[in-house]
């Protein structure tokens, strides 16, 4: 029982980061019908910004908020420079554009910075633990879960209690009708990218704290986790994205801990097999979204 609870906490900690990433992807998918494979590049760019700041002797207290700001700024720049040029194009064009951004960002860092990983210090408390009964809980997991809950509550408040949130939800439901009702598409889309960047920034702080380094392809792993979590939850569903993040995190930790030694190296393969089975029996993901055609 203790081991199960321990796995549950570890899984929730990991799943919290996935949930934030998936929510950012779901927000963009909701308004643009774009599965944004460039989402992870926000963490790559933020990681290099963090590295530069550590080189200038800034501490995590300064670097952490800077990561969020850089992520928001990068998200808006990517939208402005790339996605706004192909707005209204087919889903496939949007998808290719997001791949293009991903490869462009990686290549720029390889060409003009380095192919090597750039190291920076992890905060000292990342690996500290505290005991609750027989459980040994990492401070990091507790902080991640707490911050994620606050962020999700703030996001819910933003979506439920502001005009922007109303417009965003309306656009996600039916963009054409929302525009006819006076919703400005530019504002909604840029707002969505800013929100997506904010969520990626929060996730990026924890991802980078744990990793202690960045690299040109640092964004691939978080991007894949976020996309898979969003798919598990049901593309376009923000609640589903959060749920998918927690499910993915728990599945990874539980399987790695409980699979027999002989097949433990296949943990990721088993996770993907389970996802494949989910899509066979429930192709729309965990939560079904009534979807209208987006612009």
């Amino acid at each position: 029982m203790t081991e199960l609870l321990q796995n549950l906490i570890d899984g929730l900690g990991r799943g919290s980061i996935y949930a934030l990433l998936a929510l950012g992807i779901a927000v963009i998918f909701g308004v643009m019908h774009l599965l944004n494979f460039a989402h992870g590049e926000l963490i790559t760019i933020s990681g290099y910004a963090a590295y530069a700041m550590f080189q200038a002797d800034f501490s995590w207290y300064v670097v952490a908020p800077a990561i969020v700001l850089v992520s928001i700024a990068a998200s808006l720049v990517i939208e402005w420079v790339a996605f706004s040029r192909v707005r209204g194009a087919s889903d496939f064009t949007l998808l290719l554009t997001s791949f293009g951004i991903h490869f462009l960002v990686s290549s720029v860092f390889i060409l003009y910075v380095s192919a090597s990983k750039k190291q920076f210090p992890r905060p000292g408390w990342v690996t500290n633990t505290f005991a609750v009964g027989d459980l040994s809980i990492e401070v990091f997991d507790a902080v991640v879960i707490g911050v994620t809950l606050v962020t999700l509550l703030a996001t819910v408040a933003l979506l439920q209690r502001t005009m922007f949130g109303l417009a965003l939800r309306g656009a996600a439901e039916d963009f054409d009708t929302a525009r006819l009702m006076g919703v400005k598409s530019n504002s909604v889309i840029r707002g969505a990218f800013a929100l997506s960047g904010f969520l990626a920034g929060i996730a990026g702080i924890f991802w980078l704290m744990r990793a202690g380094n960045t690299a040109p392809s640092a964004g691939i792993s978080p991007m894949l986790s976020g996309v898979i979590a969003a798919l598990i939850g049901g593309m376009g569903s923000m609640r589903g994205a959060v749920l998918g993040g927690f499910v993915l995190g728990l599945a990874e930790v539980m399987l790695r801990s409980r699979l027999p030694d002989g097949i433990a190296p296949l943990t990721d393969g088993v996770v993907f097999l389970m996802i494949a089975l989910l899509f066979i029996f429930r192709p729309q993901g965990l939560i079904t979204v009534a979807r209208a055609e987006r612009v």
Binding site: Q6, N7, D10, G13, R14, R210, A211, R256, S257
Partner: peptide, 8 residues
């Protein structure tokens, strides 16, 4: 870079 389950 997260070895929680192995470490436990």
């Amino acid at each position: 870079t997260d070895f929680s389950s192995q470490v436990n």
